[in-house]
Simulated assay, not measured.
Amino acid sequence: MPDIILPGPAGRIEARYQKQKTPGAPMALVLHAHPQFGGTMNNPLVYDLFHMFHGMGCTTVRFNFRGVGRSQGTFDSGAGELSDAAAVLDWMNTLYPNPSFVWICGISFGAWIGMQLLMRRPEITGFVSIAPPASMYDFAFLAPCPASGLIVHGTKDLVVPEPDVQKLVDRLHTQKGIKITYDKIEGANHFFDKHEAEVVETVKGYVNERMTNPYDHR
C-alpha cells in the first residue's frame, strides 16, 4: 500500500493508494471526517472502506485533508478541503484514465465535501455519503443531484439527528433521473462505534449492485 505525497493547492498532500492492474478498472476516493474533530485517513472506518473498495476491484485512494498528518496547510472550513479532494481526483484521472466507474465516498464532513465534488466533476458515477452533516451544513447545492448514490446514517446519532438526514433524502427523492438509497444503521451513533462492520457491509452490497447493474439507477 504505497504511501505517497501529492502536490496540492496548499502544499503537499499525504495519501495512500492501492491500484488495480486491469486497464479501465473502477476508481474510488475515500474522504475522512472533520479535521478539527479527529478526522484522518487512518480512522478505522476510512481504513475499512478503503480496503473494501480495493477488494471489489477499484483503484482506491484515501488522503489527509490540509493540516492533517503530513498534509500541509491549515483547516479552511471546506473550500480548501474541496480543492484538496479535486487535486487528488485530478492525480487519479491522470494516472488511471478512462475508469469504468468513479466512486466518491465521504464520512461526515467528508460526505459534505464529497457531495460538492460530485457537483463539479461529471466523471463521478456514484456516491456514498456516511453520516452526512445535514444539520450543520447546507446541502441545497444538490439541485439537481447529478448521480445516484447511497446515504448511511445511525439512528442514535446525537451529532446529526437522523430526521435532518431524512429531510435531505426526501428532498433528493423528488429529483428525477437519480435513485437515492437510504440505509439506517439501528443503534449507531455518529461515529458508528461497534457498528463499523455493518456500515462496510451495507456499502459493499450497494457498490456491488451498482457496478453489476449500472443502468438500474438512472
Rank of each mutant, 00 (worst) to 15 (best):
I151F: 05
M1Y: 11
P161T: 03
T174N: 05
C105H: 01
Y137H: 11
I180S: 06
I124C: 04
Y182V: 02
R121F: 12
N213F: 13
S135Y: 06
N64L: 04
V203T: 03
T74M: 12
T174S: 12
P133Y: 11
E201V: 04
G24C: 05
W103Q: 10
Q116H: 15
V199P: 02
D216V: 02
V46T: 10
L45A: 01
Y137C: 07
R62T: 00
G39V: 00
M52Y: 09
G57M: 13
Y182W: 05
Y206L: 08
G205S: 13
D90E: 14
S135H: 13
S108R: 00
A147C: 10
P26Q: 11
E196I: 15
I124E: 02
G154T: 09
R121K: 14
C145N: 04
M52F: 12
S100Y: 04
T74A: 14
R120F: 03
Q20T: 06
F139K: 06
D183Q: 15
P23Q: 09
M1E: 12
N42E: 10
G24R: 05
Q166D: 12
P133M: 08
A188S: 11
I185G: 03
G11I: 05
F141N: 03
H153I: 07
I107S: 01
R12N: 09
H190I: 06
Y215E: 14
R121E: 15
M27V: 10
K184A: 07
H217N: 10
D216E: 12
G8K: 04
P97N: 13
G78F: 07
G106K: 04
R12S: 10
G55R: 08
I178D: 01
E209D: 15
N64K: 04
G177W: 01
A10R: 01
G110W: 00
K194D: 14
V68W: 09
P122I: 08
Y206A: 12
Y182G: 03
H190E: 07
G80W: 06
G67Q: 02
L142A: 13
D90V: 01
D84G: 03
L118I: 03
M211H: 08
F109V: 01
S100H: 03
H217K: 11
K167D: 12
A131Y: 09
M27H: 11
T60R: 05
D76Q: 11
I107L: 15
Y17G: 02
S71W: 00
M211T: 14
A188F: 08
N93C: 13
A143H: 06
P163E: 08
T212M: 12
P161E: 05
I185P: 02
K204H: 12
F63Y: 13
E186I: 13
D76V: 07
R210I: 15
T59G: 12
